[in-house]
Design a protein around this nucleic acid. Structure first.
Length: 493
RNA sequence: GGCAUCGUGGCCGAGUGGCUAGGCGCAGCUCUGCAAAAGCUUGUACAGCGGUUCGAAUCCGCUCGAUGCCUCCA
């Protein structure tokens, strides 16, 4: 199903600052690279938001019938704690603090990352390469950049020469910065530096004797610079120019700017046609970050074990909450917002469950085909999931009205509605039906049904003291009875 | 300090020149022994001040406020 032939997708390209019609390099195929996590601590919810945005984008591409190669890396080396020349890297620091091997750190938090993403129902990327697995590729790029004259070696380290690069290319085109401004605004560096200019960045850092993570190179033992791995891995798996590069807004500068510079310096090509940036998840109005401690772990949300939460929330509710905001907007996390999303999510899923039982008739009271296209229009407009969800609730309203016999639907429209709803809710948004797979034991079911019978007997005898006691005490245990036209049902929270 | 982004009804959150999403809450109604649950119905809001325009939440300017990046960060 090559739906993409019938749909015109527009994306916000950070490189131009505009919404542009999306056309891949090779028709029907998409190469997408997303900067993954540095695995030196547990992934927090803010990290998850970015990856979830691109998971949704990946899902929509697939839904449209594209063949997508989605590469999301694991950074397991090379990111420095700060810009100081001594430059300990984060993973090495964590390894030292915990007195374990750096690769144990990497393993521990990679497993955590995968575990959390699985709970959020992420689709795995096509390739998940690691930085340490691509040292040779990185060395080759450094050699190439040196050969082209855009880098220089000092004391066993290699730096990218930003000024030199800017003479032939445009450094700052992604983030809207001008090199002259950046130079003018640079404070004097007091520490002595090997760099010719503060804007220069490391391609290769010499490893001090105490540095654990090290590899041999033409310039001595060392480790790769912060930005190089993404250039190496994206080029290797997606080519010198590919369709989409994504990542968090906070990576736009300097990380993505440097990636462009490295690629252009080494092979002359602008590496990416469409740069997509996902915006930050905030908490208390401030960006979530590992370094500041202003963050919340997914596990804390699932267990409710955090001071800002009044109760636990299942992964799909969190996903739904995030999908209710556009991926380019800042989103603030709060208990109230999650509670509101939870109610909306439950209403959506309940309507979905009710769809199959709808009675069909000879006419339909709303235009299902038009509604379906509206759903696509929303997604085609830069993946506007909030508008998509608004349309889904439009369908929820009709489903409920049909269920109550106040509106009609034909069999073919019902099938179209069902198929479209399922596609968008489960395939594109990646939500999961909370009612599936959580069957409580038969015994519990039987016990509650017995109590419902006893209560109904009491009600028949107008013994409301007994019937209300059963109802209220069950509720106190988290079992809610729901009296409906066709009898009493219950839900267990 | 420099460069950006944002400020929408009680809350969350779309929209970007006229037709004014959606969710949650509140209220009303239906249902019920009473409730709860569920369902339906309902909201003319766009920080402030000027300007452009027949017409602006939407464009321009200024003011105020918030955030992000400029150092590792999704």
């Amino acid at each position: 199903m090559q739906l993409y032939k019938d749909q015109t997708l527009k994306v916000t390209n950070s490189l131009t600052g505009k919404k542009e019609v999306f056309n891949p390099v090779n028709e029907g195929h998409i190469g997408m690279y997303v900067c993954g996590p540095t695995v030196y601590s547990n992934v927090h919810l803010g990290n998850c938001r970015t990856f979830m945005s691109f998971d949704m984008i990946f899902r929509y591409f697939k839904h449209l019938g594209y063949k997508v190669r989605y590469v999301r890396n694991i950074t397991d080396a090379g990111h420095l704690v700060d810009d100081a020349e001594e430059g300990e890297d984060k993973i090495a620091k964590k390894a030292r603090l915990e007195q374990i091997e750096p690769m144990e750190v990497v393993q521990r938090y990679t497993v955590d990352f995968h575990n959390i993403l699985e709970q959020f129902n992420f689709l795995p990327p096509s390739i998940e390469p690691t930085a340490t697995g691509h040292i040779i590729e990185q060395l080759e790029i450094i050699k190439e950049i040196l050969k082209k004259g855009f880098a220089y070696e000092v004391n066993g380290s290699v730096y990218f020469d930003v000024k030199k690069f800017n003479e032939s290319f445009d450094y700052g085109k992604l983030s809207g910065r001008k090199l002259e401004d950046m130079i003018a605004n640079t404070r004097e560096l007091t520490a002595q530096s090997d760099k010719k200019s503060p804007q220069d960045f490391a391609l290769w850092k010499k490893a001090e004797p105490q540095h654990i993570m090290r590899w041999p190179s033409p310039w001595g033992d060392g480790f790769p610079g912060w930005h190089l791995e993404c250039t190496a891995m994206s080029t290797k798996y997606l080519g010198e120019t590919f369709d989409i590069h994504g990542g968090g807004m906070d990576l736009k500068f300097p990380h993505h700017e440097c990636e462009i510079a490295q690629a252009e310096a080494s092979n002359g090509n602008s590496p990416v046609n469409y740069w997509l940036h996902a915006n930050m998840l905030t908490m208390n109005g401030k960006k979530m970050a590992k370094s500041t401690g202003n963050n919340i772990l997914p596990g804390e949300i699932f267990s409710g074990n955090n001071a800002i939460l009044s109760k636990p929330f299942i992964p799909s509710v969190v996903r739904f909450f995030m999908m209710q905001a556009h991926y380019t907007s800042i989103l603030d996390l709060s208990n109230d917002a999650l509670l509101a999303s939870e109610k909306g999510f439950n209403r959506l899923i309940d309507a979905l469950d009710n769809m199959s039982g709808l009675e069909t008739g000879v006419n339909t009271d709303f235009n299902v085909a038009d509604w379906k296209q509206k759903c696509y229009d929303a997604m085609n407009d830069d993946f506007n999931t909030p508008i998509l969800i608004a349309n889904l609730f439009e369908a929820v309203k009709h489903i409920n009205l049909i269920k109550e016999g106040k509106e009609n639907i034909t069999l073919s429209d019902k099938e179209l509605l069902q198929q479209t709803m399922n596609s968008f809710v489960f395939d594109v948004l990646g939500l999961e039906n909370k009612n599936d797979g959580h069957q409580d034991s038969d015994k519990l079911q039987g016990v509650v049904e017995l109590l419902i019978q006893l209560r109904n007997d009491a009600r028949g005898n107008k013994d409301f003291a007994t019937s209300d006691k059963i109802r209220d005490q069950l509720l106190a245990m988290g079992i809610q009875l729901k009296d409906g036209k066709e009898g009493t049902t219950f839900s267990i929270s």
